[in-house]
Amino acid sequence: MIAATATLTGGFGLLIGSFLNVVIFRVPAGRSVVSPPSSCGGCGVQIRPFDNVPVLSWLLLRGRCRDCSARISPRYPLIELLTGVVFTAVALRFAPWVALDLPLPSALGPIAETLAFAVLAGVGVALAWIDIDTQRLPDAIVLPSYPVVAVLLLVAAASTADWGSLLRAVAGAAILFSAYFAMAFAYPQGMGLGDVKLAGLLGLALGWLGWGELAVGGFGAFLLGGAYAVVLVLLRRAGRGSGIPFGPWMLAGAALAVFAGKPIWLGYLHIVGLG
């Protein structure tokens, strides 16, 4: 059952990754993600369905357009693979197959929880890449994610009467949003409002998991982003005053918290003598 679930979610993630390629390219430009259909940037010919199979089509075409031989960037299969991997990781982390042994409505809990974090994973892949490309975190992606994740967590809480986790999720959203808003207000050159809005969404998800995960995700973003900035400075790829897209590091810190937050937090408490 575990292998079957991982395979199915990984395959579904590849398909979502193909759609995210469209989102990453069109949303920052204010274009529709529905129409027109995808086409080659070189010759303008609409991409055929059999040339739009995630990863496989790129490999069979050897990274070239079938009609004009224009180069197709390897970032497209990379995003598809990344999305497949993170979807599989989410499924393994939250184990939705346990719902098969639960009566309704309790079965809705693990399913809704898994879906909430799968949505966050897909949104995260798109936002990270857009921020790298444009240093923006579009409201068109971030804001609609709030009600989607919130409703799914509400369903998960209601199915098991776990209202404490839901209240902690709301508190986590408020804490991270307020902290980032204060930083953006104090130093607007270093923190944008897009980061603030994303912080609330991440706080919602991390707060659901626990206070330790919230702390690890919050501080992890600055530790990972800071380490990256130091490496850039040492390699002379950036100066002390250079800015870097911070959204990817917020998402990396959140991912660290989702998959390893509890042991990291417990280890920290042990080191400081509180565990």
Score class of each variant (00 low, 15 high):
57 S>N: 04
101 D>V: 13
84 G>C: 10
96 P>F: 10
105 P>R: 06
53 V>R: 00
102 L>W: 07
92 L>F: 00
80 E>N: 02
85 V>Q: 01
68 C>E: 11
87 F>G: 05
109 G>A: 15
101 D>H: 09
92 L>N: 00
105 P>D: 08
107 A>H: 11
94 F>I: 07
74 P>E: 07
51 D>M: 10
94 F>V: 06
82 L>C: 12
66 R>T: 01
58 W>H: 10
55 V>R: 08
104 L>S: 15
60 L>Q: 12
99 A>P: 07
56 L>C: 03
102 L>I: 12
99 A>N: 09
63 G>D: 04
68 C>Y: 08
99 A>C: 09
72 I>H: 09
92 L>G: 02
47 I>D: 00
38 S>N: 01
88 T>D: 01
79 I>L: 14
49 P>Q: 01
88 T>H: 01
39 S>E: 04
93 R>W: 04
87 F>S: 11
85 V>P: 00
53 V>G: 00
95 A>G: 06
67 D>K: 07
82 L>S: 13
70 A>E: 14
69 S>M: 06
67 D>R: 04
78 L>P: 00
50 F>D: 12
70 A>G: 11
102 L>Y: 11
89 A>E: 03
96 P>E: 13
100 L>M: 14
89 A>K: 00
109 G>E: 11
55 V>G: 14
58 W>T: 11
57 S>V: 08
72 I>S: 04
102 L>D: 02
107 A>M: 08
109 G>C: 06
72 I>Q: 02
107 A>T: 02
76 Y>D: 07
92 L>W: 08
37 P>Y: 03
78 L>S: 09
73 S>C: 05
62 R>A: 13
95 A>Q: 15
103 P>N: 08
94 F>S: 08
105 P>Y: 12
77 P>Q: 11
86 V>H: 03
59 L>P: 05
109 G>F: 02
75 R>I: 15
93 R>G: 04
89 A>Y: 01
44 G>N: 06
95 A>K: 15
104 L>Y: 09
61 L>W: 09
74 P>N: 06
108 L>E: 04
109 G>Y: 01
76 Y>P: 08
101 D>P: 02
61 L>H: 09
113 E>R: 15
82 L>V: 14
106 S>Y: 09
105 P>L: 10
83 T>K: 02
60 L>T: 10
75 R>Q: 14
66 R>A: 10
89 A>S: 11
41 G>F: 08
76 Y>R: 04
48 R>V: 03
88 T>I: 03
100 L>Q: 05
100 L>I: 14
53 V>L: 13
50 F>K: 03
58 W>L: 14
